[in-house]
Design a protein around this nucleic acid. Structure first.
Lengths: 231, 231
DNA sequence: GGAAACCAAATCGTCATACTTTTGAGGTGT
DNA sequence: ACACCTCAAAAGTATGACGATTTGGTTTCC
């Protein structure tokens, strides 16, 4: 799901550099300079810049150049922007933002899933809850992560709301980052696991209130733990 | 805040056409065809297509062409995509999605605002609550809308979460759409107004629980009304 | 001396064109 | 039926030329 070709490669250089503040707000780049620095043609530079412009990270103006826009204008929901920020110096702030977003969205998604999920989705959810329990005992962090991601993505998808569903990848990025940077308890907490099972059961039983409540406990817990780690 | 130049104009044609389903999923466009149809050069077409590719609405492949991606892949949080969908045949679905998103996010934002808002923001919020009350009595729908937008945007901004803050424009689009298409009670309900005042007061008093609760009542009410109108 | 008009350079924006690379489809031979 | 080869279609990239616009200095005129 990446941008292809040379513009993509340019983007992989510029995006993270801007997201991390290495190229600061207000900095001005010239197209010709980028051509030389990366050894590509105008075509390529222009297309990459257009994409950055599409996510409001830069603005191109005649006679002045390509100016890096203030962060407050960026499309902070763009998956690429989120990835770049998570990879760089902005990681703590980005994790906090995403944490609050999860607290807001995932309980609502769980509630909706309780009433909207298909039979297949309910079955899959139960099965994932079992998998989580098993891999948590085995203390196999990577497969656990995989199942955790699948679980949360599925709840978001089963909510029947496309916007919630799209946050699945973002949540996946958060969970992955948390594991990669060892911001997780070394062995998943049994309590958290049990809550996941509760969410699955409540959704299967069409119990929206309980599903929402259990999910809220999960994500607020994750947020609190995150705040502990970051301070 | 629009994309400039010819690529921007192309986008204003292609984006809505794709968003509304006029150009359906799986349709294949050829670059050369677009050049002729819009009388622009290759450069322009390529840059516009790159932007659409950046929001995952199309994918360009050699020897095949530019294929419209399935809706499930689109960046549904991109403001342009939201605008295009609100303007076209997808409006009901988009309004429903956004309604649920508001129900999830705005109460959380209100709670955060109660603890994070600056003194200036609290003052401004109180003042806006008063304005709302006044313009509601006067039944001046347009200024009421203006203040309503300002109110909700401010709560989102005062939450201190950049991602919530960015939903301000989106909420504005929803509220505007609701008024434009007469999906609102002809005179704003006194009860809703009172709830806005309650939100403002709770935030000023740093009462997160009450702020969240009042805001939840507002947005769930709005969602229910929306569902009534759309069915 | 100051303000308004003007001019020139810088930089992006667009076009036209040529060449390269990838890849799907159809044909060929076993 | 299968694998392989070839070819052509389409996007990808590079480059030169020109147009448009903005900025900032410079001139000119009170």
């Amino acid at each position: 799901m990446e941008i292809q070709g040379l513009p993509g490669r340019l983007l992989d250089e510029l995006g993270p550099a801007i997201a991390s503040g290495e190229i600061p707000e207000g900095a001005v780049l010239r197209g010709e300079e980028l051509e030389r620095r990366f050894g590509v043609s105008r075509t390529v530079v222009r297309e990459a810049v257009r994409i950055l412009e599409g996510m409001r990270m830069v603005a191109s103006r005649r006679r002045v150049g390509i100016t890096v826009q203030p962060k407050s204008l960026w499309d902070v929901f763009d998956p690429m922007v989120i990835r770049w920020r998570l990879a760089g110096a902005d990681r703590p702030a980005q994790l906090r933002s995403l944490g609050s977003l999860r607290v807001a969205v995932e309980p609502a998604a769980a509630a909706l899933a309780a009433t909207h999920a298909s039979d297949d989705e309910r079955r899959e959810l139960s099965s994932l809850a079992v998998d989580l329990t098993v891999t948590a005992r085995a203390a196999d962090l990577n497969t656990f992560l995989e199942h955790d991601i699948a679980f949360h993505s599925l709840v978001l998808r089963a909510s029947g709301n496309e916007m919630f569903a799209h946050l699945g990848d973002t949540v996946a990025a958060v969970l992955t980052g948390r594991t990669e940077y060892h911001l997780m308890p070394h062995q998943p907490e049994p309590y958290a696991i049990r809550l996941h099972r509760e969410v699955a059961e409540a959704i299967c039983a069409q119990d929206a209130v309980h599903a929402e409540q259990a999910m809220r406990t999960i994500v607020t817990g994750a947020l609190e733990e995150l705040n502990l780690q970051l301070d």
